[in-house]
């Protein structure tokens, strides 16, 4: 009996938080489909009476949300590719090759983890300004890659530690050189690490706001974060289209997450515990 009550209390606590997690999203979805009259005068918790799909249309056409979405995908994808290539390469050298300064380099990359992105904002801005790289995808991709690198190298190192040395020795006897071993033995075995790195880098690059606000001012190159910020500024009194833009920015990631939540969670655990 006592146990039953305890179980009920547990569920009640968890369900309260569950509602707090989902409710803002429900509310967003509901008001993204309402007209202003219903949003401002109706019951805030109710479903829309007349479903206003026009909100989505105007978010896409006038608000350019699809362009921003495409930009975000492009910037994030390229960042992930760069981070994966550079971190796997560096990690092999850092964990398996022997050279002077290896230890110091390892420490340097670990220290990179604690460095906040603010530190680079002004200098990188000034450099980009000088070489005329503001308002380009590269102005985001390169800094994002640099700031994701530390975590990626740490993740790689921990995966690399699980690869037995004997495999390399065998490949060496078969006549592989250092780079041959890297490409034929190490790279194929690092595949499980890649999704972990990709997920970490995705979360960082997809959500980044500070660099994107400062480095990008034309609407052509805006990523979703900045795009939504500007959109919210211009449509401050017309909630429906903003809601639609927020929904477009949010629900694809949520759906993808729901399909692979296991993988995402395991990756983040691996990254944090090993990092």
């Amino acid at each position: 009996m006592k146990e039953k009550i305890a179980k009920k209390i547990k569920h009640i606590i968890l369900i309260i938080w569950l509602v707090l997690c989902i409710f803002p999203l429900y509310w967003l979805l509901a008001f993204s489909l309402k007209n202003n009259n219903e949003i401002f005068n109706g019951n805030p918790l109710a479903l829309p009476k007349v479903w206003q799909f026009e909100n989505y249309k105007s978010a896409m056409s006038v608000g350019n949300v699809l362009v921003y979405f495409r930009n975000s995908i492009f910037v994030t994808a390229l960042t992930i590719v760069i981070v994966i290539i550079t971190s796997v390469m560096a990690s092999y050298a850092l964990s398996r090759l022997i050279f002077v300064g290896r230890k110091m380099l390892n420490i340097l990359f670990v220290l990179g983890l604690t460095i906040p992105i603010h530190a680079a904002l002004l200098p990188v801005f000034l450099i980009l300004q000088k070489i005329g790289f503001l308002n380009s995808y590269a102005s985001l991709i390169i800094p994002y890659s640099a700031f994701a690198l530390s975590m990626a190298i740490l993740i790689c190192n921990s995966f690399m530690a699980g690869i037995p040395y004997e495999l390399e020795d065998a490949a060496c006897i078969d006549g592989c050189g250092t780079l041959g071993i890297f490409f034929r033995v190490i790279v194929p075995l690092m595949r499980p690490a890649l999704s972990t790195i990709a997920i970490f880098t995705f979360l960082q690059a997809w959500n980044e706001l500070m660099f994107a606000t400062v480095f990008i001012s034309d609407s052509q190159h805006r990523t979703l974060t900045v795009g939504i910020q500007t959109l919210a500024g211009t449509y401050s009194t017309n909630w429906g289209p903003i809601g639609a833009a927020l929904a477009i920015a949010t629900f694809p990631t949520i759906v993808v997450y729901l399909f692979m939540s296991n993988k995402v969670q395991q990756s983040l655990i691996a990254g944090a515990v090993k990092g």
């Binding site: 050298a93 398996r96 530190a119 200098p123 990188v124 060496c172």
Partner: peptide
């Protein structure tokens, strides 16, 4: 194979360039 300095430099170069140019130099600046 493990002491191959050339390979170490090639493998590390992209990461070091990224790290130094976007993080180290800006912090010094």
């Amino acid at each position: 194979v493990r002491h191959n300095k050339g390979a170490a430099i090639i493998l590390l170069l992209p990461a070091i360039i990224l790290f130094v140019s976007i993080i180290i130099i800006p912090i010094i600046c």
